[in-house]
């Protein structure tokens, strides 16, 4: 399922002193089965964009097509000017069947462990599927499957989610979304607060989910992650997309990196130092530490 943004704008608190433009003329296609990383400074609009993906936030203007679901708030003109009255009417209309959309696109928020509330892990994971009209039996079935995907075995089913460790809680929360069997999994800064080991396991989990056919769209500040896992990087700056390309293309653009206060991934920084000393590395082959070592090996031979 692909997601298409056409000239999407979003402004917070319209008409209030705190009014703030968060997205400006965003046009982008998230292709079928993609792994896209949203990057940019805090406050550049990443989180706002993610929430548009399943209509938690509706655009001020613009059109979003999520599979066959269409949210059309594109501007209406009258005598060369925006027809505010018509726009107002458009916005007031209630969206139909928003649940069918939320089932296709699942969002995992930052610190998802804070959304757990049931007495047992299994019940918490079943909560979503049941909301979407699954029967008790069906919900159980998909929940078992989802918990298996996040590597939590049957010994966890009857435990209270609140006695688990931080990393385990986060897995339960993600299972709660996976149990909806979404086509697209959206994650807002998923690795914040995890230790190195937890982060590694978690990213492997996301990679697995991706390889099973689910699209992944995430926002992050972790450039190592972007280089290693993402196929596409989307750089936001003050609500605008300034680059949408492969991570390697982004990390070659020194000026852009500097402007957005982004650090290069450590492997590329290290590679740069070696290149300066005369080692002819091909950065396109470098994604992580093993591939860096291999590239060094290739050059030395």
């Amino acid at each position: 399922m692909s997601i298409k943004f056409e000239k999407v704008n979003y402004t917070y608190d319209i008409g209030l002193p705190s009014e703030k433009v968060a997205l400006r003329d965003i046009s982008h296609i998230f292709s079928d089965h993609c792994f896209t990383a949203l990057i940019g400074k805090t406050g550049s609009g990443k989180s706002t964009l993610l929430q548009h993906l399943n209509a938690l936030i509706l655009p001020t203007s613009g059109k979003i097509s999520i599979g066959s679901y269409i949210i059309d708030f594109s501007l209406e003109y009258k005598d060369g000017k925006v027809d505010e009255r018509k726009m107002k009417r458009k916005r007031k209309k209630k969206l139909k069947d928003i649940k069918s959309l939320r089932k296709k696109v699942g969002i995992v928020f930052q610190f998802p462990e804070y959304q757990l509330f049931e007495e047992t892990v299994l019940k918490d994971v079943m909560f979503g599927p049941k909301n979407f009209g699954k029967s008790e039996e069906e919900a159980k079935k998909v929940s078992y499957e989802a918990l298996k995907q996040v590597d939590l075995d049957s010994s966890y089913y009857e435990r209270s989610p609140f006695e688990l460790s931080g990393g385990e809680k986060r897995r339960v929360a993600i299972a709660g979304i996976l149990a909806l069997e979404p086509d697209v999994l959206v994650l807002d800064e998923p690795t914040v607060g995890l230790d190195a080991d937890g982060e590694k396991n978690f990213l492997n989990l996301i990679k697995d989910i991706y390889s099973r056919g689910t699209s992944i769209i995430l926002s992050t500040h972790n450039m190592d992650l972007v280089l290693k896992y993402a196929e596409n990087a989307l750089l936001l700056e003050d609500g605008k997309i300034v680059l949408a390309d492969r991570p390697h293309v982004l990390f070659k653009n020194e000026e852009l990196l500097k402007r957005s206060v982004l650090r290069k991934p450590k492997v590329l920084e290290f590679a740069d130092e070696l290149i300066k000393k005369g080692l002819p590395l091909n950065v396109e082959n470098i994604f992580d530490i093993p591939s860096l070592a291999k590239e060094i090996d290739r050059c030395k031979r």
């Binding site: 995992v108 928020f109 804070y114 909301n131 979407f132």
Partner: peptide, 16 residues
């Protein structure tokens, strides 16, 4: 703010 976040998170799980 916390409240808004929880509401959105649960809305993603189909709560209306």
């Amino acid at each position: 703010m916390e409240c808004q976040r929880v509401i959105k998170a649960q809305a993603s799980r189909g709560v209306d």
